[in-house]
């Protein structure tokens, strides 16, 4: 831990829920990025948790922007900074709704244009800020306020969509592994062009688990293989050690599901579908890493 900077760019204290893992992520994102950084934040939990005018908990400039507009706004910002010779980091920090749903067009455009920025999606698998409605990133079987009987469809695979744009760097991360996240943000910011990091960020009220389990839940997601940690740099995929270990000896999926109230009453079919999806995903990643596809 000694290598992590001691500076905190989140002042005490945000209005995030107790046990909020996305706030935990933001601490490490900003530690990695340092003070010459601007955050572009679309409508999401992070728009609210900064605090209410006239004081903010964020000690870097934050430009709050409309729901669908984060990547496009960051495009303009990054272009303007480079036009004036500034090296300021531009980081879009967006939830899953603002990324996989309403913001996907702007994200795709910014990636395609080669925008020099880092886009981070912190994924709590629903519209958290408005009280947990389903998003495209909600997993199958999960109850949300708009899927009271459990979601019927599987989670949208935004990573494969992003990968199709062939950005120079993309990675997944999880709030339960803040040092790993820190390293990935550091590396991303050292690379020119569009970068994408997708963080699984468990949410106590949304996923319905006790606040103290926030880190535990993240670890469970990784150890069951529901969430895979990897990096893809210049087209080369590396599965991180912890996910490799999880692939060899995964914890049973039920351990992850039963720890969360949102999966209460999930059907056997939905569990099977989730199991098949994660196995397919692992197979695909393993094949890619081994150069088989």
């Amino acid at each position: 831990m000694s290598e992590l900077p001691k500076e905190e760019y989140l002042k005490k204290c945000t209005s995030a829920c107790a046990g909020c893992s996305s706030t935990l992520c933001l601490r490490y994102v900003l530690k990695a990025a340092g003070p010459d950084t601007v955050l572009v934040v679309p409508a999401c939990c992070t728009s609210v948790l900064q605090g209410i005018y006239p004081t903010t908990a964020m000690n870097v400039p934050v430009y709050n922007v409309a729901f669908a507009a984060a990547a496009a706004c960051a495009s303009g910002m990054s272009t303007a900074f480079s036009a004036t010779g500034k090296k300021t980091n531009v980081i879009a920090y967006a939830g899953d709704g603002g990324t996989v749903d309403i913001g996907i067009q702007a994200l795709s455009g910014a990636l395609e244009r080669g925008t020099n920025f880092l886009y981070i999606c912190y994924d709590n698998e629903a519209y958290g800020n408005t009280g947990m409605q389903r998003s495209g990133a909600t997993p199958i079987g999960a109850r949300t306020t708009t899927t009271p009987g459990g979601k019927l469809e599987t989670k949208k695979d935004i990573d494969r969509i992003v990968a199709a744009h062939e950005p120079p760097y993309m990675a997944t991360a999880c709030s339960a592994y803040p040092q790993d996240l820190y390293k990935k943000v550091k590396k991303a910011l050292s690379i020119q062009g569009p970068k994408f990091i997708h963080i699984l960020a468990p949410c106590p009220p949304g996923w319905r688990y006790p606040t103290e389990k926030t880190v535990e839940l993240g670890k469970l997601a990784v150890r069951t293989g529901v969430w895979m940690l990897y990096e893809r740099e210049a087209g080369k995929l590396t599965i991180n050690g912890i996910s490799k270990a999880a692939m060899k000896k995964p914890l049973p999926l039920e351990e992850y599901l039963s720890a969360q109230g949102r999966f209460k009453g999930i059907s056997v079919e939905a569990i099977r579908e989730m199991q098949l999806t994660l196995e397919r995903n692992q197979r695909r990643l393993r094949n890619e890493e081994e150069g088989l596809c």
């Binding site: 831990m1 992590l4 001691k6 905190e8 989140l10 005490k12 204290c13 945000t14 995030a16 829920c17 107790a18 046990g19 909020c20 893992s21 706030t23 935990l24 601490r27 803040p178 040092q179 106590p204 006790p210 606040t211 103290e212 926030t214 880190v215």
Partner: peptide, 26 residues
């Protein structure tokens, strides 16, 4: 390291003015 709100200082004292009591540390 895991405190979501960063209210635990370097010398590991917990700032109870701001600690939300999530219990992650415990």
């Amino acid at each position: 390291m895991y405190c979501p709100d960063g209210v635990i200082s370097e010398d590991l004292t917990i700032d109870l003015e701001f600690c939300k009591g999530c219990g992650v540390c415990a």
